[in-house]
């Protein structure tokens, strides 16, 4: 079965190099990828993920707002009765990783993660589900 992935930028961070690369990597690995563009909110991401019936959500976060915004995506999903796994990629200091996982984030990909790791992590997150 083809995995469906929503990749999203939330908040005000306009750095879209990483998310576009990830989107192409996942697409080239045979997944269906949906990108909803810049300046999304936790609510718009949760709604789009449910409407599109995706298997995984990938959030790209480079502005340092991950501790505030990523958990809000998990909450927005829960409040809609959904439990789609959320993977965060971007600039996340190591010490924040356990805190994000405690807040319901499935996995975190830091700077320098190779393409294979990105693809494997998304697949693994979907299958745990």
């Amino acid at each position: 079965m083809t995995l469906r992935v929503l990749v999203a930028k939330i908040g005000l961070d306009g750095h879209d190099r990483g998310i576009k690369i990830v989107a192409r990597l996942l697409r080239d690995a045979g997944m269906e990828v949906i990108y909803t563009g810049l300046f999304q909110t936790p609510d718009t991401v949760a709604s789009a993920a449910i409407d599109e019936d995706v298997d995984v959500i990938g959030l790209s976060m480079l502005s340092g707002a991950h501790m505030t915004l990523a958990p809000l995506v998990v909450e927005a999903l829960r409040s809609r009765g959904a439990s789609i796994p959320v993977v965060v990629g971007g600039i996340v200091p190591k010490q924040d990783i356990p805190l994000l996982k405690a807040a319901g984030i499935s996995e975190v990909l830091g700077p320098g993660a190779p393409g294979t790791a990105v693809v494997d992590t998304i697949r693994a997150a979907a299958h745990v589900q």
């Binding site: 908040g11 005000l12 909110t41 502005s63 340092g64 707002a65 501790m67 505030t68 915004l69």
Partner: peptide, 9 residues
Amino acid sequence: MSLGEVGRC
């Protein structure tokens, strides 16, 4: 929309 981003970058 500024939530979590104030003074950060």
